[in-house]
Each structure stands twice: as C-alpha cells, then as structure tokens.
Computed example of a mutant assay.
Amino acid sequence: MSTFPALLLVHGAWHGAWCWQPLMDHLPDLDVRTVALPSSGQDPTALGDLYDDAGAVGEAITAIGRSTVVVGHSYGGCPVTEVAAAVPNVHRVIYLSALMQDVGDSVLSLVGGVHPPYWDVHDQPREGKDCGYFEAAKPLEALYGDVEPHLARQSVARLGRQSLASVTQPLTQAAWRTVPSTYILCEEDIAIPLPLQEAMAARAERTVRLSSGHSPFLSQPAELARVLRDELALSSRDRRTCPL
C-alpha cells in the first residue's frame, strides 16, 4: 500500500468518471478514486445541482476514510470548494484549471451572468424551478484542442448534459481558506483562459504550470501524473510534520 494520501478525482461539467482513465493508467500504484457528479448526465430531468455534487464529493471523501488529496477539474472545483473543508481527512485541494471561487460566488457570477459561447443552453422552467441544462458547443475546440483526434472524438461522444442549477447556485463555503491548496495552470486552455486561471490561482498556496489545453488528463496524462505524484509527495511530507 502506498504511503501517499489517497487521491480523489472530481470531473468537470458534462463529463463523468470515465474521463480520468488515461491518467489513472499512469498511477497504478496509488489509491486513486473517482466520483460521478449528479449535475452531469444524459437525462436532463434527473440532473442534480451544485449542492448535490458537493454531497457526492463529501460522501466519497468520507468513504475513503484516510488522508486524501482532492483534485477538482474545471467546474469540479466548485463542489470541491463547497465541501472539502467540512470533511476532516482532506489534506490538500488541487485545482486543475478549475474554478476557485469565494463564498457567494457562482459559475455565472464569474462571467457576469452571461452564458459563455461554448454553452448550448436549454431553458426548461418547471414548477418554479430552473430545470434547464446546457450542452458543450464546439467541444473539440474548447475542451479537447490538443487531445489526439480519435480520443477527442470518443470523448465528445460520451459528454452528457449539465444542469443550469449547478452554475447559478452560490458557494456557501470556500475550502481554500482553511485547507492547503495547489493550482495547476493549463496555459493553452480556451475554456478557462489563462488570465482568469491566474487570477484565481493567486489564492492558492502553490501553483504549477502545464503547457496544455483544458483536458491534460487526456492530452498529457503522463505529465499530469508526474505533477500529481509530486504534489502527493509534498502532501505526504507535510502530513508527517502535521498529521491529520
């Protein structure tokens, strides 16, 4: 059994746990877990919201039952930020080109309440609730620009829908205020441009740079695995100094 903390991978909008497999193939000796966010899926009537996602992440962390480093990618940074400080075994949060926001912020507040051009929005109000969803428009360009073409097309075919509620609800907690954090900047990202990443990364204890697009777990899994191993090694050292 590895002496490193466990690693929990939290995907972003439209994705599922499937997206992490190329990365996990490079981490066979580590205790790596994934979680499926309820806000993402194929059935738009069954999609959860931000708080459902945070609950799923919290349950996954609790189930691990030992020191854990949590990685949030893109939107996945939101539920991680919401819940990670409330679970005692979280040792570090890693934001992978992810949203690293403060209490009261939502995804839409970050972009001035205007849907980004790579969202294909479907409003479906029902019984006073926003039951709408959005799909990824031009995902090959926005999400997978540097991914091998065949793998990129396979990934596009597996994308689901994302609930609008998940991007309109505000954060009630901000884990990075009390939990050590690292931000991995993806320098060629189109979906979350580098200046926006850098502004959020100013809140992190450490920053790391990758010359990659939005999805390095698909385009550069070996390099991302190396970065995560380095972070786990640092976290393991920190844990020996100040154990949970």
Score class of each variant (00 low, 15 high):
residue 203 R to M: 00
residue 179 V to D: 03
residue 94 I to T: 15
residue 203 R to T: 01
residue 21 Q to T: 15
residue 206 R to I: 01
residue 106 S to D: 10
residue 35 V to E: 03
residue 75 Y to H: 10
residue 20 W to V: 04
residue 26 H to P: 01
residue 128 G to K: 10
residue 115 H to N: 06
residue 148 E to I: 05
residue 181 S to G: 14
residue 169 Q to F: 13
residue 155 S to H: 08
residue 139 P to D: 10
residue 141 E to W: 10
residue 216 P to C: 05
residue 243 P to A: 05
residue 138 K to F: 14
residue 231 E to I: 15
residue 17 A to C: 00
residue 31 D to P: 05
residue 139 P to G: 10
residue 32 V to Q: 00
residue 38 P to Q: 04
residue 196 L to K: 07
residue 57 V to N: 08
residue 21 Q to E: 15
residue 239 R to S: 08
residue 187 E to Q: 15
residue 101 Q to W: 01
residue 179 V to G: 06
residue 148 E to S: 02
residue 229 R to V: 13
residue 30 L to H: 15
residue 21 Q to I: 07
residue 230 D to P: 00
residue 87 V to L: 06
residue 131 C to N: 15
residue 208 V to A: 12
residue 180 P to K: 09
residue 102 D to C: 00
residue 169 Q to I: 04
residue 18 W to A: 06
residue 150 H to C: 07
residue 182 T to C: 10
residue 14 W to M: 02
residue 202 A to Q: 14
residue 148 E to D: 13
residue 190 I to Y: 14
residue 234 L to E: 15
residue 157 A to C: 10
residue 103 V to A: 13
residue 160 G to S: 03
residue 56 A to S: 14
residue 204 A to K: 02
residue 180 P to L: 05
residue 141 E to T: 13
residue 86 A to N: 14
residue 83 V to Y: 04
residue 76 G to Q: 08
residue 121 V to E: 04
residue 128 G to T: 12
residue 88 P to S: 13
residue 95 Y to H: 02
residue 71 V to W: 11
residue 24 M to E: 13
residue 127 E to C: 05
residue 106 S to L: 09
residue 99 L to A: 12
residue 109 S to G: 15
residue 128 G to Q: 10
residue 213 G to Q: 02
residue 94 I to R: 05
residue 34 T to Q: 13
residue 3 T to W: 11
residue 88 P to H: 07
residue 23 L to K: 05
residue 88 P to I: 09
residue 155 S to P: 04
residue 42 Q to F: 13
residue 201 A to I: 02
residue 72 G to N: 06
residue 159 L to F: 14
residue 50 L to F: 07
residue 38 P to C: 02
residue 24 M to L: 14
residue 176 W to Q: 07
residue 119 W to I: 00
residue 68 T to M: 06
residue 70 V to M: 03
residue 12 G to Q: 08
residue 5 P to G: 12
residue 197 Q to G: 11
residue 216 P to H: 07
residue 60 A to G: 06
residue 41 G to F: 09
residue 182 T to G: 03
residue 141 E to I: 09
residue 30 L to K: 08
residue 110 L to D: 10
residue 36 A to G: 03
residue 45 T to V: 13
